[in-house]
């Protein structure tokens, strides 16, 4: 029975190590911990073009993540994209006239919403909308604009 006790202890250690590894994966490696639950308030913003923005993309202010994109929808009347952001309760003093812009992290990185604070006394509450938005920079558009202007420039210099 001493033998069996040893086996039991080692098996216990094995199962513990396995569960510990799972916990580490859940807590340390994945985003289970942050902005997961309903702890926060929702703010809407309409964009003409959201580019490659995805649900759960970060919402940042001054580079600090303050929330996530909870939902992306489409407004049938204005033909605009509606992004619902869930912002952590800690950040409850964001001015009402804050602007939302879609940026890309690095040249090829993921897209996120950056909030730029305005000067309003009142702050955003659950269900509010951000009016001032600017669209995602779509790489194809930038390139075609660049080529177009370049072609136009060439034309001018040529004539």
């Amino acid at each position: 029975m001493v033998e069996y006790r040893k086996i039991e202890i080692l098996v216990g250690a094995f199962v513990f190590a396995g569960l510990l590894a799972l916990t580490i994966l859940a807590m340390k490696v994945s985003n289970l911990t942050d902005f997961g639950g309903g702890d926060g308030y929702e703010v809407k913003a309409k964009f003409d073009n959201i580019g490659g923005l995805k649900v759960r993309a970060p919402v940042k202010m001054a580079g600090v993540q303050i929330g996530r994109v909870a939902e992306i929808g489409f407004d049938n009347k204005t033909f605009q994209a509606v992004a619902v952001m869930k912002i952590d309760r800690k950040f409850n003093a964001i001015p009402k006239d804050t602007a939302a812009k879609i940026y890309t992290a690095g040249l090829l990185g993921e897209q996120y919403i950056a909030l730029e604070p305005g000067g309003d006394e009142e702050s955003l509450k659950d269900g509010d909308s951000i009016v001032l938005t600017s669209n995602a920079v779509v790489l194809e558009q930038v390139i075609s604009q660049f080529l177009y202007s370049k072609a136009a420039g060439d034309d001018k210099s040529g004539s």
Binding site: V15, A17, G18, L19, L20, A21, L22, V29
Partner: peptide, 16 residues
């Protein structure tokens, strides 16, 4: 069946 997910979790955690 019990051991496999635990071993895979250990593998991933150690790998990270």
């Amino acid at each position: 069946i019990i051991a496999m997910p635990l071993l895979a979790a250990i593998f991933s955690a150690v790998g990270v």
